[in-house]
Design a protein around this nucleic acid. Structure first.
Lengths: 144, 144
DNA sequence: GTGAATGCAAACTCTTTGCATGACT
DNA sequence: AGTCATGCAAAGAGTTTGCATTCAC
């Protein structure tokens, strides 16, 4: 994951963007928090660390990272957008959302990826990305 | 689709909810607009028809329909939630979103459903629902 | 008649934007 | 020096909530 932050900084620089410390702090926070982060969570982490960055700048940084395809934005229906680092290798995962407690966890499934790939070549859209969300109850909530 | 509105009204009544005309109008609007509707789109349709219903009541009705699993809520990243009727038979589809013009269209794919089903039984969540979004360019935007 | 549903307006949350200040190259 | 980036505060959009009124049963 730390390898992602290097990748991201390099990509930003290569695209001609300045490497200011607020921006770098956001990149680090995304790298550290990893899968499924909220703008507010990034802000909270940076405040705790004493590197507070204005929320507006966090959104601007995330927006930029998204345009450079360094993060992917998605929503699971809590009103807040979630972001996660895009791995340079292309590996990626999808999400399980617990409808009781809101927990978001990740899974990978090659068979699912293959099905989506085959499907993508069949539809009339030029498909560039996809995401899958499974909803249900996490083991902890289910036990009750 | 009209069969859905009957199903929905019956389910509402059966669950002990009053059948007021604003609520019925929302059900009809969802049935008519079908796949992928926004609260504002419902409101606009009802205004055009002269059956205007307050936005708050539309949200309350949608919320209720969702709790009764008569509609499913999802978001494709435009800030507004989308809703669609849940067919009693269980047939369902997923969505293609054009990243250029925002158009949302639907597709079905049995192979994808099978992959998700197999996957669902393997994860440690009790999976109750799923959704898949493919993002890319629609044929019209791609032509440019 | 009684409790549920509605409508309006105010409140909230998340996100974006305008603008003056400050920082990289 | 010249931009680009930041921070703050205000503006926006979507959604929710409080409360008095209306309506279904």
């Amino acid at each position: 994951m730390s390898q992602w932050s290097g990748h991201a900084r390099q990509a930003l620089e290569g695209a001609g963007y300045r490497s200011s410390s607020p921006r770098a702090a956001v990149v680090d926070a995304v790298a550290e928090l990893g899968c499924s982060v909220t703008a507010r969570e990034i802000s909270d982490l940076l405040v705790r660390r004493g590197q507070a960055v204005g929320l507006a700048s966090i959104y601007r940084a995330l927006d930029l990272l998204e345009r450079l395809r360094l993060v992917q934005r998605f929503e699971v229906g809590e009103g807040a957008a979630r972001y996660e680092p895009v791995q340079p290798g292309g590996e990626h995962h999808h999400h399980l959302v617990c409808e009781s407690c809101g927990e978001v966890s990740a899974f990978e499934d090659p068979a699912l990826e293959r099905a989506i790939e085959r499907l993508s070549s069949r539809v009339d859209y030029a498909v560039g990305a996809h995401d899958v969300t499974l909803r249900g109850e996490c083991p902890a909530c289910h036990a009750r």
